[in-house]
Every structure is written in structure tokens, then in C-alpha cells.
Design a protein around this nucleic acid. Structure first.
Length: 575
RNA sequence: GGCCCCGUAGCUCAGCAGGAUAGAGCGACCGCCUCCUAAGCGGUAGGCCAGUGGUUCGAAUCCACUCGGGGCCGCCA
């Protein structure tokens, strides 16, 4: 927050004459948990007192003397072991609202990204079928994180790694072949590891339209390449549509298959080899698990233990072919070569075992220069009538992203998916979001925004100028009630919250904050029923109305930009 | 056996780059619509922050261990 910055600087200035290093990093200036303690609180005296051997309370008093001369500081108070509590003048708060109005959707934007290029890889589901509910969480999280980082000044690339090179797409091709035979009138039976989902039926029909009976009863070698490519493309079309239904648009789809036969994999391995990280050897059998059938085999290994992994990882099978890990190495090498300053991967929790080796690869290939963060997204349980909805991929009846979005809408899906930190399991209660009530956090926030828009519409119709430039000139001395200041203070928390959310890669904080802000707004709204002086629109008092409209609009700006970061549409009215 | 996540009010969860008396919603109880959307709001009750040690002026927050719950791990991707 601007005010925090200002106070922090003042704090340093105030401390300097006392001969203390201003770069003391453990000094914090933040709003205290208990508002009774003022608007801002700093532990500076306690931290510095320790260093200099001065009594914290004496230091705090000295600081208070300096700070109380600033025009923005209303009162200072030394409390507890040496906290210095500041109360800002009402004008400081009013100025913050004005700056919110003049900055509009840029209000609160942290700029620590400084144009750094960040690659956010997310979803990256195998192209073997439609996206399901867990992917929806990864998509909502990854996209919101990308928005958040972009908002904080990063140059963000959203990327999807298409695993179209492994055995699973052969299985897909065979399943598509069965549907193709079916379209040609045969009766078929799926292998236990096949993909029996009905989404391949149209693919089989399309293949029949394309090839007629040409590949019926022909050996696999004749059709597998064509069928794999056709089916994979069809699946990626479905996945793109699924993402689009959720409002997610990728910048890049990176094909694993495209790495093969181009020397890309070999080049990445040469790079590792040049760093002495490739060797031929045998892995020890895993401890503590059934190992009767363990046969040590000679294979090519990556010395990932040099970079923090628990064991070295195979990159060639004993028959000389690549493991799935080999193209992963090449893929991350490619990202590094594309010049990103930072990599972020969003994985499902079932990929927790790959975190260390991916980190090791990036660390090794970039010589430790490119930071990579891997965010694991925990599982989602859908609840209907308070009971988990059964999701079975095997039977082909798993709940798809599309079904969920069709049922509750993209906005609800995204918001609810972001009401938990990424690494905590999430219960998605279908019943809850069907109700338009306080239970439904999406509704609650949307409702606040709709009320704000409604007020502004009515004000506009009544002849008030509700454009931001006009409102930013409002005389905010006309607002001063506690309930109004509660809202103003909440709005002013936005920049600090954004900064924390972006630095910690925690978009869920925005969802929680918006709920709180909406609550503060609804509270003021209802106070006005008992106290008509709090009502926004008052025809007989145009100047006061302008001032209250300014606060109202500032709240709307924050809700709107918060929702946009989450990828949720701010609505103007409830229907 | 190893690794990852979690354990905070009856329930669902915030808070965790250490800070003062631990917060919110739901549920329970008591209230509030001649007035911009009551699809809402106010109030009351409710806690050994799993446990034990450690670091610190100060720990729900950091570290170690223990106990509980969930998940992942073998040239399958």
C-alpha cells in the first residue's frame, strides 16, 4: 500500500539520526490484526532495540516523536513491548480512494515482476479424452496465477505440454480403431487398458468417412500412425473446447512428439553430459516394497541426486529406447533456451513424485540460473447432497470439466476452485453453488458488485456524473462515518493483499479477500436502512452523494479487478 | 522403506516471509424490511491452534521428533 511505503520510508528517516542501519530487514509495517491498535503498526523499535541495546520503548517514543510531525499521521502510540501504533489522518484514507479512482483497473498493481518473462505450464493433460474435474482445478489455478503474475508486471506465457509421444496415444489409436470398426458395423470389445469412453465414437465415424473400409482387418502397422495422429488431434480439439468453456486460452501448445527425430532430446542430453551428469549404471531396488521381481539392469541414468533428487533417474530403458523422462528433459531445455526468466509448472498431486527430478533437470540445464516452481494441485471431491459423486475413469463415467461447467457455469467453477490453497484438498459442493445465498461465495461477491453497479446506474439516471475522473474530484471530506471508513480501509488493503498473493503464488487469497470486501460493503448497505444518512444517493445533497459514490465506485473497481484476475466475470445485475 | 500435503470453534475453512486478547461463514440462539435488491444485515454463545521438545524478547506461524488423516513412488506415461 502506498501509505505503508510512505510510513516505512518515514520510519527509516526517523531512525537514521539515531545512527542505526536503515536497511534493517526485519522491520515490518503493517495493519495490526486488532484495529483497536490503530491503522498501522511497526515493530521497528523492538527489532532495532535489540541491535543497538536501546530499550525498545524508548526507541519507540523517539520514533513516535518524528512520525507525529508528518501530516499524514494523526496519532502515535507506543504499546506493549515496543510496538509503535499509528493512526492515519482521515485525509490520508480519502486520498487513497482518489488514487484508486484515478488509477482505475490498475489500482493496487504490484510491479515487482519488472517485465520478467515467466512461463506458466498448466493442465497438460494427456490427449486421450476430455478434461475432467481435477483438470478444471489445475486450469482455474494456473490461469488465475498467470493473470496475477501478469498483473504484477510479469510477461506471462501460458503453455500446455501435449503428451502425444508416449504409449498412451498408441492405446488411444487402438481404441479409436475399435470405434472405427464399430462404425463399419463390427461389434467390438475394449481391452481393459483401452479408452472405452463414448467420445471416441464420433472419431471412429470420422475415420470411417475418411477411410471407408480400407483398414478393416488390416494389421496395426498399416494404420496406427494415421489413427494416432487423427485421434490425438481430435482429442486436442475437445480439450481446447473444454478450456475455452472455462475461459482459458493457452498461448502455446507444445508437442512432445515434435521433439522426436529432431536431435532436440539428444542435444539436451549432451548438455547434461557435458556437465558430467549422465552415466550408465544400475539402479538399486526400491526399499521396503515388494522386490522379488526386481532385476537390476544396465541403463543410461541422469545424476539427479547431484541436484537434490532422492535417486538418479533413468532416461533410457535397458533396450535403449527413451523413458518418458527423456522428452521431458528436452522440453524443459527448450523452455530455458526460449529465454524465460522463471518457470512455473502446475501439476496434479499424483505427479508429486516428479517434482524433484524436474527441478533437478532445470537446475542442471540452466546452471542454477532459472528458478522453477512446481505447484501441485490437490484433488477435488464433487459433493452432491452432501455425498461425494463417484468418479470412475475406468468405467468411462468420470465427471468431465464440461459437465461441471454446463451444470454450474464457468464463473462458479473458477471461483470455487480458487477458494482453497492449491495444495489443500477441495470439496466442491454442487448444492451450495446452486443456492443464491450467503452460502454461495460467488453469488455473494457478484451481488455486491451488482449492487454497486445498480447504485451507479441510478445515480447516473438522476443526473450525477459517475465517470471516474469526475468522482475522483469528489470532496471526500463528506464521508466520515465509521461504517464508511471500514469500507475505505478494506479497499485500501487491496494493494498489499495483491502483493502478498502474487509473491506467494496464492490466487486463493484474492477470493477470500473479495468475500470479505463484499461483506463490508453489504454491511454498510444495510446500516443505511437504519441510518438514512449513509445511503449513497441523496438528491438534496449532491456533494455528499458524489463523495459516497466515489467510495462505492472504488469498491467496485477492486471487486472487478479481483474477479478478473480470478477469471470470473463481474456482473452488473443479478438475474 | 522413502517422499509430498493436511491436523485451528459442533461443521467447512482463513490466518503461517514470527508480533499484542487466534478470525470468518455455516449450524444454534436473539434481533432487523413504510427506505437505492432482506438473494441481505446486526448481536450472543462456542478454542489446551493434534502432542512434545527447540530457536526467539515473542510461536497457530520457523526447526526436530511423535501421533493421527490423505496421496505418490519400481526401464507406465
Amino acid at each position: 500500500m502506498l501509505i505503508i511505503e510512505a510510513v516505512a520510508e518515514l520510519g527509516r528517516e526517523g531512525v537514521l539520526p539515531l545512527g542505526i542501519d536503515a536497511e534493517a530487514t526485519r522491520i515490518t509495517v503493517e495493519p495490526p490484526r486488532d484495529p483497536q491498535h490503530g491503522d498501522m503498526s511497526t515493530n521497528a523499535a523492538m527489532v532495532l532495540g535489540k541491535r543497538t541495546g536501546t530499550r525498545p520503548r524508548d526507541l519507540a517514543n523517539a520514533l513516535a516523536g518524528k512520525l507525529s510531525r508528518d501530516s499524514r499521521v494523526a496519532t502515535t502510540e507506543v504499546a506493549g513491548p515496543g510496538f509503535l501504533n499509528l493512526r492515519l489522518t482521515n485525509d490520508s484514507w480519502r486520498r487513497a480512494i482518489c488514487s484508486a479512482l484515478s488509477e482505475g483497473s490498475r489500482f493496487g498493481r504490484p510491479n515487482f515482476g519488472e517485465g520478467r518473462r515467466v512461463n506458466v505450464e498448466f493442465v497438460s493433460a494427456n490427449p486421450t479424452g476430455p478434461l475432467h474435474v481435477a483438470h478444471a482445478r489445475g486450469a482455474a489455478f494456473g490461469d488465475a496465477l498467470a493473470n496475477l503474475l501478469a498483473f504484477a508486471g510479469h510477461e506471462v506465457t501460458r503453455e500446455y505440454y501435449v503428451n502425444d509421444g508416449g504409449a498412451q496415444v498408441d492405446v488411444l489409436a487402438r481404441s479409436a480403431y475399435l470405434r472405427y470398426l464399430e462404425a463399419n458395423g463390427a461389434s467390438v470389445e475394449f481391452a481393459p487398458d483401452g479408452y472405452p469412453g463414448t467420445y471416441l465414437i464420433p472419431v471412429g465415424e470420422a475415420l470411417k468417412d475418411l477411410y471407408g473400409t480400407r483398414f478393416v482387418d488390416r494389421p496395426e502397422t498399416e494404420w496406427i500412425d494415421r489413427f494416432r495422429e487423427f485421434a490425438t488431434n481430435a482429442m486436442m480439439d475437445i480439450i481446447r473446447e473444454d478450456l475455452s468453456a472455462l475461459g482459458v486460452r493457452m498461448d502455446t501448445f507444445f508437442s512432445e512428439r515434435a521433439l522426436y527425430g529432431t536431435d532436440r532430446i539428444e542435444a539436451a542430453l549432451r548438455e547434461l553430459d557435458s556437465r558430467g551428469l549422465i552415466y550408465s549404471g544400475k539402479l538399486a531396488p526400491p526399499v521396503g516394497r515388494a522386490q522379488e521381481d526386481w532385476e537390476p539392469r544396465q541403463q543410461t541414468l541422469f545424476r539427479s541426486t547431484e541436484h537434490g533428487d532422492d535417486v538418479d533417474r533413468p532416461i533410457r530403458k535397458s533396450d535403449g529406447s527413451w523413458t518418458y523422462f527423456a522428452p521431458d528433459i528436452a522440453y524443459h531445455f527448450d523452455k530455458i533456451e526460449r529465454g524465460f526468466d522463471e518457470l512455473i509448472n502446475v501439476f496434479g498431486f499424483d505427479h508429486g513424485g516428479y517434482v524433484k527430478r524436474i527441478r533437478a533437470v532445470v537446475d542442471a540445464l540452466s546452471g542454477g540460473r532459472i528458478p522453477i516452481e512446481i505447484k501441485l494441485v490437490q484433488l477435488v471431491r464433487l459433493l452432491a447432497d452432501g455425498k461425494p459423486v463417484m468418479m470412475s475413469k475406468r468405467s468411462g463415467t468420470f465427471v468431465t470439466l464440461r459437465e461441471l461447467v454446463d451444470e454450474v457455469g464457468a464463473d462458479v467453477t473458477r471461483f470455487v476452485m480458487l477458494t482453497r490453497k492449491n495444495d489443500v484438498a477441495l470439496d466442491f459442493d454442487l448444492e451450495q453453488v446452486r443456492h443464491q445465498s450467503r452460502d454461495n461465495p460467488v453469488f455473494y461477491v457478484q451481488y455486491a458488485h451488482a449492487r454497486i453497479q445498480s447504485v451507479l446506474r441510478k445515480a447516473g439516471n438522476a443526473g450525477f456524473d459517475v465517470n471516474d475522473p469526475a468522482l475522483s474530484r469528489a470532496d471526500l471530506r463528506r464521508v466520515g462515518h465509521d461504517a464508511e471508513f471500514a469500507l475505505i480501509r478494506k479497499v485500501c488493503e487491496w494493494p498489499r493483499l495483491l502483493d502478498l498473493a502474487a509473491r506467494n503464488r496464492e490466487p486463493h487469497r484474492i477470493a477470500f479477500f473479495l468475500s470479505e470486501l463484499a461483506g463490508t460493503f453489504h454491511s454498510l448497505w444495510n446500516r443505511s436502512k437504519a441510518e438514512p444518512s449513509l445511503r449513497f444517493l441523496q438528491q438534496h445533497d449532491p456533494e455528499g452523494t458524489n463523495a459516497r459514490l466515489a467510495v462505492c465506485r472504488a469498491t467496485g473497481i477492486v471487486i472487478s479487478s479481483g474477479l478478473c484476475i480470478l477469471g470470473v466475470t463481474p456482473v452488473d445485475e443479478m438475474r
